[in-house]
Nucleic acid binder design. Structure first.
Length: 277
DNA sequence: GCCCAGGGTGTTT
DNA sequence: AAACACCATGGG
């Protein structure tokens, strides 16, 4: 029962992770916690048998209950839930989530995937036909130019600062897990290159803090158009999950925002310099 | 608070 | 061909 509602495509391509692939024959493959997974949607029930994947796909959480509660908040949210009921918030490795979302800033998904792939190929352990995500220790003592092969630009020094703080224990997932959300967020933001948005992503995807609500450009647009006047807190405990349904729904329905996009070119120009929407 | 740069890629005009 | 947009942030 637990795994039957897991949809691999919705879960693995809703923007929360960057290392999974779907082959044309419907086979999903990915690596997490140094282990490779190759699986088809029809076989997803077998994931409950392996503790690693049972945890990774959050199969012990009752999403039906959460969905029901969220759906009661607003008809639009109910529709977003119905659109992708098979989404689950993955329990990813903390460091992988931290590094990945530092890389993700002001960036597009194809390029994020490329940078992370090169990070693993260059610094991760090879096994079978893939590479593990490199431990932060692998980046210790390096200079930004040592990461030039990643072509991650200005994000290189951010990655190095994150690795240094994690290795030094200044950033510790175990203690972050116990802290109140805002305190953990403040703590994460002491890393150079981690602002409010990246911190919320790390809290949600790397520490499974379901209250965290990452606000990226798409979410700002979606909130304005679909939930005028509503704030993240209005979604309650499962705000992060609500965010994921809304994010996925919005990305799959860009036409909902076309009017806004073409409204003012001068406005979208301003986006890259910081403020918009 | 305001404004700009930083890097590269996919997408739109 | 050129401009735009991108799962933001740091620094002046």
């Amino acid at each position: 029962m637990a795994a039957s509602d897991l949809n691999l495509r919705q879960t693995l391509f809703c923007g929360q992770c960057f290392r999974w692939e779907e082959n044309p024959d419907g086979v999903f493959s990915g690596i997490a916690f140094g282990k490779k997974c190759v699986i088809r949607q029809e076989e997803n029930k077998s994931l409950t048998d392996d503790p690693i994947w049972r945890t990774y796909f959050d199969l012990d959480t009752d999403y039906g209950f959460l969905q029901k509660r969220l759906s009661g908040i607003s008809p639009v949210l109910s529709e977003a839930v119905q659109y992708a009921p098979g989404i689950r918030i993955l329990r990813q490795d903390f460091w992988e989530a931290l590094a990945s979302f530092i890389i993700s800033q002001n960036n597009n998904i194809p390029r994020i995937r490329g940078i992370i792939a090169r990070l693993c190929e260059n610094f991760g352990e090879k096994f079978n036909d893939g590479y593990a995500f490199p431990e932060p220790q692998k980046l210790l003592g390096l200079l930004p130019e040592d990461l030039s092969s990643l072509r991650c630009g200005f994000r290189a020094r951010y990655l190095l600062d994150a690795a240094q703080k994690v290795c030094a224990g200044e950033i510790d997932p175990v203690s972050l897990q116990k802290m109140p959300l805002e305190k953990a967020k403040t703590q994460l933001m002491t890393i150079c290159g981690v602002g409010p948005k990246v911190a919320d992503c790390v809290l949600l995807y790397g520490l499974h803090r379901m209250e965290a609500f990452p606000m990226d450009v798409w979410m700002k647009r979606a909130m304005k158009t679909l939930f005028p006047g509503m704030k993240p807190e209005d979604f309650g405990q499962g705000a992060g999950l609500a965010q994921q349904y809304i994010f996925y729904y919005s990305r799959q329905h860009p036409e909902l925002f076309l009017e806004k996009n073409s409204l003012k070119l001068s406005d979208s120009k301003k986006f890259c310099s910081g403020r918009k929407l």
